[in-house]
Structures are given as structure tokens and as C-alpha cells.
Design a protein around this nucleic acid. Structure first.
Lengths: 109, 109
DNA sequence: TTTATTCATTGCAATATTACGATTAAGTAT
DNA sequence: ATACTTAATCGTAATATTGCAATGAATAAA
């Protein structure tokens, strides 16, 4: 099918999965790391930075923007992207809660 | 294509993407949360707990096992699953480093 | 006004993912 | 041995993802 049966899961589970999914491609990881590293708007050079074709990068940026993790503002002919810090923080809280579940000492298997 | 060009990214970026990808489906999120919640080996009842068919659950478990996040041990006719705490901790370190990148005050866009 | 430049969108091919019925494998019980 | 239980695997259909060439839209430069 290729189609997740989201209706049988909680909103939280679906949200975690959506965030994780967008991190599930190295190009998007790389884009985000670059945006963090230069800590400013990046106008265009993402295509040079990462080795993928321009439409491919554009598509990855669209997905990141769709989830609200980055913002883009038009600046003449180019577009400036940067991390949406508020939404990043919100996402982080959700993911941390999932990752920080801790197993008590009880070893079983 | 549907095929990520992993060779143009760092090992770290690929590793983050691999972990994130496995969390990118609510069924696997749900399985992991359940394993954490009951904090013991789960023998079988995941199929009842989650509403998917047995082969589907088995396939998701396989992916989680393949990444080392869970272990399964045969117990008679059934199989007991639980979190692999060591590997979970390792994964957590990698993901936290990615999520905790912090944007300094510089607001741009 | 033409010509670049920059980025989004469209369309498409290749591959991956998700889900499940049917089957198999392996252990248990009768 | 036979029947039952549990879980993995196989095969397959439906859908999603990835990547890029071609094209389009919008601004800037000549």
C-alpha cells in the first residue's frame, strides 16, 4: 500500500512520525545542519553546498517549510531560508519526550 | 528514483536519517512506546495492542530489530521483544546532538 | 526591451514503503 | 502422528518518495 493507517494511532504518535519522517533523509538533515551552522539566512547556496540538483533541493526545502521547521522569505530574485526557532523548539519537546522514555533497570531478554 | 544518494552525505548525516526513518511510521512509534510502557518483554500481544495484521507488525519489528533498537528472544512458540537499552542510549546521543543544535539569538527572516 | 539569474513547479522514471493474504517453520499439546 | 499456536517469510497490490530535465515566474541587469 505505501499508505500508513494513521487513524489507528494517537495524534502524538502521528506527530512524532511526521517529524521523524522529515529527518529521515540525509539531504534534509544536511540542509538543517547548514542552516544552523551559518546561523543566518541562506540565500541560494544550498544547491552548491549539497550536491543535489536545484529542483531536488527545492523539494526538500518545501517539505521542511511545510512542517514549519524553516521559513523562507523572498529577497529580490533569491529566497532566504532559516530555522523557525519557535517551531523547532516545539518539535524538539515532542521528540525529546519520545526519546527520553527510560527503561528502568529491569533487563529481560 | 526513490533512492537516496547517501554517498554525498556524511556518515553522521546518514545515521541520523536512518534512525529518524525508522521512527517515521506511527506503528513503530507505537510499538516502541508500548515496549517502554510495560517495561518488560512483550510476548506477542503487539498484534492485538496495535490494530495491524500480524505480518505487518512482524515487518515493523524486523526493521526495529535491524537497527538494533529492540531485541527478540524465542520463548517457546512465541517471541519476546524488548528495548535494547544500550543501543537506544547510543541512538539517543546521536539524535540529541542533532536536535540540540541551537540557534543563537540572531533572528533573520 | 532583451537577457540573466534565481527559485518554484510540472512531469516522469526508478525505487521504496506499507499492508495483508497465503504459506511456511517451529514449537506444544493431545 | 495430528492438531494447534505463534511468528517469520513470500508474493503482490497500492501508494509514496526521490531525483532530475524541462519549463515557468519573477526580479534584476544590460
Amino acid at each position: 500500500m505505501g499508505l500508513a493507517k494513521t487513524e489507528m494511532f494517537t495524534d502524538e504518535q502521528n506527530k512524532i512520525a511526521l517529524f521523524a519522517k522529515v529527518f529521515g533523509h540525509p539531504a534534509r538533515v544536511s540542509i538543517l545542519q547548514h542552516l544552523f551552522k551559518i546561523n543566518a539566512c541562506v540565500c541560494g547556496d544550498l544547491v552548491n553546498e549539497i550536491g543535489l540538483a536545484q529542483p531536488t533541493i527545492s523539494q526538500h526545502l518545501k517539505e521542511l517549510k511545510h512542517l514549519g521547521l524553516i521559513k523562507g522569505s523572498v529577497e529580490g530574485t533569491s529566497v532566504c531560508y532559516c530555522i523557525d526557532t519557535d517551531n523547532w523548539a516545539k518539535m524538539k519537546r515532542v521528540m525529546l519526550q519520545f526519546l527520553d522514555q527510560d527503561v528502568s533497570k529491569t533487563e529481560c531478554c
